[in-house]
Computed example of a mutant assay.
Amino acid sequence: MLMTSIAALFPGPVVVEASTLLPDAELFADECAFVQAAVPKRRAEFASARVLARKALAALGAPLVSLVPAPDRSPVWPLGYTGSISHCSDYCAVVVARSRDIRSLGLDVEDKRELDPAMQDLVLTRAERQWLESQLPVLRPVLPILIFSAKEAYYKCQYPITGGFLDFQDVELAIEWASGTFEARVLKTGWPAAVARLSGRFVVDPDRVGCGVALMPD
């Protein structure tokens, strides 16, 4: 997936870096310690994300710093910056922005594939299933993974604001295929208004599905 395609998922000024996995990427000592017990693929994903994130942050003038995750494993960004990380199979992508331009970002990239029935049961709400059945047959195979990816992107965007957990069934999507846009709406009562309903964009290419959500400053 082209970096320009990923950047176009977001409404504000962002920097995107993406690459196949970089298993030999150099890390800070504390980053190495954080991931030393992980399996090789997880180490490659972690290292790739940190190298790409530092490259993207440097383009915005951010300092070269360690990017060890928080205890809940969510990304920690330098003060004044925000971002999001995604990886699938052998690919990693990172998007960053200045916090004054974008309050929070959510990026998700998935391999283009059919979502298995068990996962569809977890991910799709009843209304989403009804919508899926109304779509053109040629589109139906990719729509469940698109919904999965869009919900992941929404979750990544809202989490730095709320610190709250949501199940797939707590979020319902309205997708506009022709415009490449969607709206995510939280069904759970009492969710903070700032992130209870957010719009996003998506792109589908021959190999991958990408979704982006941004929360703009007040």
Rank of each mutant, 00 (worst) to 15 (best):
M3Y: 00
M3E: 13
T4S: 15
S5H: 14
I6Y: 08
A8S: 15
L9M: 10
G12K: 09
E17W: 10
S19F: 08
T20A: 15
L22P: 11
P23K: 14
P23M: 11
A25Y: 05
E31P: 03
A33E: 15
F34C: 02
V35L: 01
V35P: 01
A37P: 00
A44S: 14
E45D: 12
F46H: 13
S48Q: 06
R50P: 08
A53E: 05
L57Q: 06
A58M: 12
L60S: 09
L60H: 14
P63V: 08
P63T: 05
V65R: 13
S66D: 04
S66G: 04
L67C: 11
V68P: 00
P69Q: 05
P71V: 02
D72F: 01
S74H: 02
P75S: 05
P78F: 07
P78H: 06
P78R: 12
G80D: 11
G80L: 12
Y81S: 11
T82M: 02
S86Q: 03
S89P: 00
A93Y: 13
A93T: 12
V95R: 01
R98M: 08
R98D: 04
R100V: 15
R100H: 14
R103F: 06
E110F: 10
E114Y: 00
D116G: 01
A118D: 14
M119Y: 06
M119I: 08
M119C: 03
L122V: 14
L124D: 09
L124P: 04
T125W: 00
E128P: 06
Q130H: 03
S134M: 12
Q135V: 09
L136M: 12
P137V: 09
V138L: 12
V138N: 03
L139R: 01
I145N: 08
I145R: 11
L146E: 04
L146F: 04
S149A: 07
A153P: 01
Y155D: 02
K156G: 06
C157W: 06
C157Y: 06
Q158A: 15
Y159G: 02
P160L: 00
I161Q: 14
G164D: 14
F165T: 10
F165Q: 06
E176R: 11
W177Y: 09
E183S: 02
R185P: 01
R185S: 07
K188I: 07
K188Y: 07
T189Q: 08
W191F: 15
P192K: 03
P192S: 10
L198D: 05
V203E: 11
D207M: 07
G212T: 05
D218E: 15
D218W: 05
